[in-house]
Design a protein around this nucleic acid. Structure first.
Length: 876
RNA sequence: GCGCAGUUAGCUCAGCGGUAGAGCAAUCGCCUUACACGCGAUGGGUCAUAGGUUCGAAUCCUAUACUGCGCACCA
């Protein structure tokens, strides 16, 4: 026997759909919203009536995952609330399609590499992915960029379809792509402005360098990874006699040693300061110097400074104007150098060159092994290498450790502006507020200016050329910048003012800057991209600064920080008044959901299975800033809530079509029954609280108590009044119907930001016509003022509920059905509760199927007395 | 090393000075003027630990432990 089999019941003709089918209803509503221009921004309305969102442009590199659904929905929930407050919503969508992720995806998808020396092929078509790296086709820059554009356009279509299906109330006329002409123009315009203001400079200096991608990277894109390294104790000779031992994890940098340092107060080494040491293998004389950054407790207390092991080396090299002995090349191999010539000094050229000859051309890791071998043979290795855990810096997308390589790069001056940038960060209201700490900590810890140039292809070029001297060497000190009105320009194809194309690359001619901007150099401008800062002053004034920047916490150091920086430099303003920081979706084992772990979930299937409202419900349950465990059972709860909304609404509306429907439509003045007033009183409080909590970005709290209240409505209030609403007593029925009418409209509106589809569907059954608001999403957020009835006593509802509960408990204990008759009901309580109960007695007795003759109500002397209910069931 | 957040029922979380809560799961029931994709009910917690403040502490303070994250160091 099927446990859940329901006996077939004839379907009454209610005038409402029999059951809720979200898979059909939701897409239909999406189309309706689009047709009715529900989400359109109105440029005619003033700024103070407008709510501006600086939507995160998702990286276009494959597919969106459940984490995107989570955070974008949270933003949409808040936006929908603002729309119901009557705000003119500016809610754009951008696509972050420039930069490395796209390049990588296109390389793999089509089996190609960009090779700028290869000529352009008209109508080029890729032959598809390649198994072996050797088989990758080398194609021109232009062909490569075309592939990038085609691919991202396709991805963006899929992204948009998903966002629509999820019900994000975006104005789809307001879109941008970070590689599109508008963004290129804005980014280049930004560069010109920074250039004019002196906030940007180019310099040839050691910079963080990724040897795999062969590009510079910024501090913000680095991460530490723990590695198993080795301490190598290496003996140095002192000129004029003596020796000492240093400890290093990077012996392959020995040839790059420029000094040896110890703490100024370190008694062990004090006597050596001012003398010179001779490096092992290469016999290079290097000064022994005091430095506070040498920690007497660490290693042997004395250490070598190389060009370059870490940022401290860079600092020391710069401060003391020491020679640059670069040995690591751009590809991560040791470059050939000559000892005895130029900067590489040696007391024994022949030995030094012989040793180095065995290292040149090796990758750093190979060179390390070889160096240890040579040191051991020379007798300079003290003991054996000792294992140690060390944190090594990597580019977040890279697989090999970063190196410091001197190259020419463009930098934005942030170090000297730290105090101002900290202050700007504090002007933004962060949600949750502790996220400001992350921002502050990051800014305080910065030790490099922001490197914005990348030696890549798919990105925004610098609008800059350099004059070439008579030998054809570029003069970097006098860059030629493009004129603002010519933007966007590509210096590889466009010609600077006063030159002709024929002079490109010729002595006395010019060359274009080869690099492209870091993708953050563009995305740091998103509020200004949307506002039209570089194109339309009037529009800009209406849309900037934005009201809300939603984003995830791991990119506070990049996206939030860079945006704050640019806004300050360009406009001396904050980019937005509020930053809403969303949490992550974590897998049930508390790990991060990531593609590499293979535990990412694609949203399309979930939408089909559970409905958009269900996924949105799950997103709405999580507070800002808080990580959420991926749990499908929550989708089920959300789906059930939508179904319940459907059924309860149908039922409530049916009541209103009952006997009370005769005559004028019941209104607030008809709410006369104390039970109804009590319920309305409760709702008033709920409605006011919801507005307050929403305004402080605590939408999750709203969903929580609205949901609880809604189930309370279904299980208790509706059960208590349904008999009366259907009864022949006109006034009592009208009171119930008026209360139900308002209640339903309130719940639909309170749920609308979270579950836009089911609420819109139900709204259309009755309220679209009765309120003159075709969409619930443009209905006014409910307020207590809508219900100008006399104050109710909430105790009436509470007491009625408690008594009804006692009756239900008894029936459950006796294993009887809910409608089983009650022969005797004895209630004992204080005078206050007794009075309250009397006011709702009829409803309670009907809902509990209680025989009126069997009722006794005993009043205790004090209100301290607890409510006690005794129930005796009758015969069938 | 510094900082931020957290530790409440089997699970996921709410509560943030006034008698320990919800949902899920579990268990027992029920065809009731919508909903069996439903409804009713039951069991389940020294609120991480130790101190302190208070008439009263899950809640405030101070330590400690653990978890997650951020930052720094990293010879």
């Amino acid at each position: 026997m099927e446990k859940n089999a329901s006996p077939t019941k004839p379907q009454e003709n209610t005038g409402f759909p029999a059951s809720y089918l979200p898979a059909e209803v939701e897409p239909a509503l999406c189309s309706r919203w689009e047709e009715s221009k529900l989400h359109h921004y109105d440029p005619a309305r003033p700024r103070q009536e407008t709510f501006v969102v600086d939507t995160p442009p998702p990286t276009v590199s494959g597919s969106l995952h459940i984490g995107h659904v989570f955070s974008y929905t949270q933003t949409d929930i808040f936006v929908r609330f603002q729309r119901m407050l009557g705000k003119n919503i500016f809610y754009p969508m951008g696509w972050d399609d420039n930069g490395l992720p796209t390049e990588r995806r296109v390389q793999n998808l089509f089996g190609v590499r960009c090779e700028p020396t290869v000529p352009y092929k008209e109508g080029y078509k890729s032959s598809g992915p390649k198994k072996d790296l050797k088989d990758y086709e080398h194609i021109s820059r232009r062909n490569f960029l075309e592939l990038c554009e085609t691919q991202t356009a396709e991805d963006e279509k899929r992204y948009e379809a998903l966002w629509r299906r999820l019900g994000l109330s975006i104005d789809w006329r307001q879109t941008y792509s970070t590689v599109g002409a508008h963004c290129r123009k804005t980014s280049q315009f930004s560069f010109l402005d920074l250039f004019k203001k002196g906030h940007v400079y180019s310099a040839e200096t050691p910079t963080l360098w990724d040897t795999t991608f062969r590009t510079a990277v910024a501090q913000a894109e680095c991460e530490d990874r723990e590695a198993n390294g080795f301490f190598h104790d290496i003996k140095f000779q002192v000129e004029g006699g003596g020796d000492f031992t240093i400890a290093t994890t990077r012996p392959e940098l020995l040839a790059a040693c420029i000094a040896v340092v110890a703490h100024p107060d370190d008694a062990r080494y004090k006597a050596l300061f001012g003398k010179k040491a001779l490096t092992p293998l290469f016999k290079a004389p290097v000064p022994i110097m005091p430095s506070f950054h040498a920690d007497p407790e660490k290693g042997t207390g004395i250490m070598m400074v190389c060009t370059f092991g870490d940022i401290a080396d860079v600092q020391f090299w710069r401060d003391h104007k020491l020679p640059l002995r670069q040995v690591i090349g751009r590809d991560g191999r040791l470059i050939p150098v000559q000892f005895g010539a130029g900067l590489f000094e040696s007391a024994d050229h022949a030995a030094a060159n012989a040793a180095y000859g065995q290292l040149a051309g090796l990758y750093a890791k190979q060179a390390r092994t070889k160096t240890v071998e040579l040191l051991r043979a020379e007798g300079s290795l003290v003991g054996e290498p000792r294992p140690t855990k060390q944190a090594v810096k990597y580019y977040e997308k890279g697989d090999l450790p970063l190196e410091f390589v001197p190259t020419r790069q463009w930098y934005i001056r942030i170090l000297e502006n730290k105090p101002a940038l900290l202050e700007q960060g504090r002007k933004v209201k962060w949600h949750p507020d502790y996220m400001l700490k992350r921002y502050e900590q990051w800014v305080e810890g910065l030790n490099q200016d922001w490197c914005i140039s990348r030696q890549r292809y798919f990105g925004v070029p610098f609008p800059v050329w350099y004059p070439l001297d008579h030998d054809g060497a570029p003069d970097y000190s006098s860059p030629i910048v493009a004129a603002a009105e010519r933007l966007p320009v590509d210096p590889q194809t466009d010609v600077p003012p006063g030159y002709t194309e024929a002079q490109r690359g010729k002595p006395g001619g010019f060359m274009g800057d080869h690099d492209v901007m870091d993708t953050w150099a563009t995305s740091s401008l998103t509020p200004m991209v949307s506002s039209g800062w570089a194109a339309d002053k009037e529009r800009h004034a209406k849309l900037y600064p934005a009201d809300l920047r939603p984003q995830a916490h791991e990119i506070i150091r990049t996206w939030a920080f860079y945006t704050i920086t640019k806004s300050w430099m360009h406009e001396n303003s904050v980019p937005w008044y509020n930053a809403g920081i969303s949490g992550w979706v974590v897998s049930p084992d508390k790990g991060k959901m990531s593609k590499s772990k293979g535990n990412t979930i694609t949203p399309e299937g979930l939408l089909q299975t559970y409905s958009a409202d269900a996924l949105r419900y799950w997103s709405g349950k999580a507070k800002l800033g808080q990580d959420t465990v991926y749990d499908e059972s929550v989708f089920k709860v959300g789906m059930r809530l939508a179904t319940k909304l459907f059924n309860a609404s149908k039922f409530a509306l049916m009541q209103m079509k009952g006997p009370a429907a005769a005559g004028a439509k019941p209104g607030p003045a008809d709410i006369t029954e104390p039970l109804d007033r009590a319920w309305v009183e409760f709702l008033k409080g709920l409605v006011e609280q919801s507005r307050e909590d929403f305004q402080s970005y605590d939408y999750a709290a709203v969903l929580l108590y609205v949901e609880t209240a809604f189930w309370n409505f279904c299980d208790n209030y509706l059960e208590l009044v349904k008999n009366r609403a259907y009864s022949g007593k006109p006034e009592a029925a009208r009171s119930a119907c008026a209360a139900l009418d308002w209640t339903l409209s309130v719940f639909l509106r309170l749920f609308a930001p979270f579950m836009p589809f089911i609420t819109e569907e139900v709204w259309g059954w009755s309220y679209a016509a009765s309120t003159g608001r075709p969409s619930v999403h443009k209905a006014a957020w409910p307020s207590a003022a809508e219900m100008p009835s006399a104050a109710g006593d909430r105790e009436v509802f509470e007491t009625a509920r408690k008594v009804l509960e006692a009756v239900r408990t008894k029936k459950a204990a006796e294993k009887r059905s809910v409608k089983w008759p009650v022969a005797r009901l004895a209630v004992e309580c204080g005078p206050k509760q007794a009075a309250a109960l009397k006011l709702a007695l009829e409803d309670v007795l009907l809902a509990g199927c209680v025989d009126k003759a069997g009722l006794t109500l005993k009043e205790a002397a004090s209100d301290e007395a607890a409510l006690s209910v005794t129930v005796e069931l009758g015969a069938a």
